[in-house]
Measured scan of single mutants.
Amino acid sequence: HMTFVALYDYVASGETDLSFKKGERLQIVNNTEGDWALAHSLTTGRTGYIPSNYVAPSD
């Protein structure tokens, strides 16, 4: 899985969403939902949907 870094803070709007903080590292599990991606946080160990425009690929 590619690793991504959060560009902004995001507060989950539902139970299936994943909250994260700017700078948090995430792995995209499934990116077939258009503007949303299923992601796993390497920081918190949690998995949920995130807005895909809130993250960018990290080196």
Rank of each mutant, 00 (worst) to 15 (best):
V55D: 03
R46C: 09
A6E: 00
A37T: 12
I28R: 02
E24Y: 05
H40A: 07
G34Y: 06
V55T: 05
L7Y: 03
S52E: 04
Y54D: 01
S13N: 10
R46V: 05
K21E: 07
D9L: 07
R46S: 06
A39H: 00
K22M: 07
A39S: 01
T43G: 05
L7E: 06
V5W: 06
K22L: 04
T43I: 09
G14H: 10
M2V: 11
E15D: 13
T44C: 03
I28M: 08
V29C: 15
N53E: 09
W36G: 02
Y10A: 01
Y49F: 11
A56I: 14
M2H: 12
T43Q: 08
G48F: 05
N30R: 12
S41F: 03
A6C: 09
Y54R: 06
G14K: 14
I50A: 02
G45D: 05
D35V: 11
T16L: 13
K21G: 06
S13Q: 14
E15V: 11
K21M: 09
D17Q: 15
D35E: 13
V55A: 07
G23C: 07
A37S: 11
T32Q: 10
V29A: 08
E24C: 03
A6F: 02
M2T: 10
Y49A: 03
G14A: 12
G45Q: 05
S41C: 02
Q27I: 15
G34L: 07
Y49I: 07
D59S: 11
S52T: 14
H1G: 14
H1K: 11
L38I: 06
A6H: 00
M2A: 10
V11C: 11
G45V: 01
N30C: 15
Q27C: 15
Y54V: 06
L7N: 04
H1W: 14
T16I: 08
E15P: 14
Y49T: 05
G34T: 08
N31P: 12
Y54W: 07
G48K: 01
A37I: 15
G34W: 06
G48A: 04
L42Y: 06
N53S: 14
W36I: 05
G48T: 01
N53R: 14
L18G: 02
T16A: 12
L38T: 02
A39L: 01
S58P: 10
L26F: 15
N30Y: 14
Q27V: 15
E15Y: 09
D35G: 15
E24V: 01
R25E: 09
S19N: 05
Q27H: 12
T3L: 12
G45S: 04
R25I: 15
S58W: 15
T43D: 15
V11M: 09
G14Q: 10
Y8V: 08
S58I: 15
W36L: 06
D9W: 03
F20V: 09
I50L: 03
T43M: 07
T3F: 13
T44Q: 06
K21N: 07
H40D: 01
T3H: 10
L18E: 02
H40K: 14
V5F: 07
P57L: 13
L42A: 04
F4L: 07
G34S: 09
L42S: 04
E15W: 08
V29W: 14
S58F: 15
V29R: 08
P51N: 05
L42M: 08
G45L: 06
D59K: 09
Y54G: 05
D9E: 06
Y10W: 08
P57E: 09
S19T: 09
N31R: 13
E24A: 01
R46Q: 09
P57D: 07
V5P: 01
S19E: 05
I50W: 00
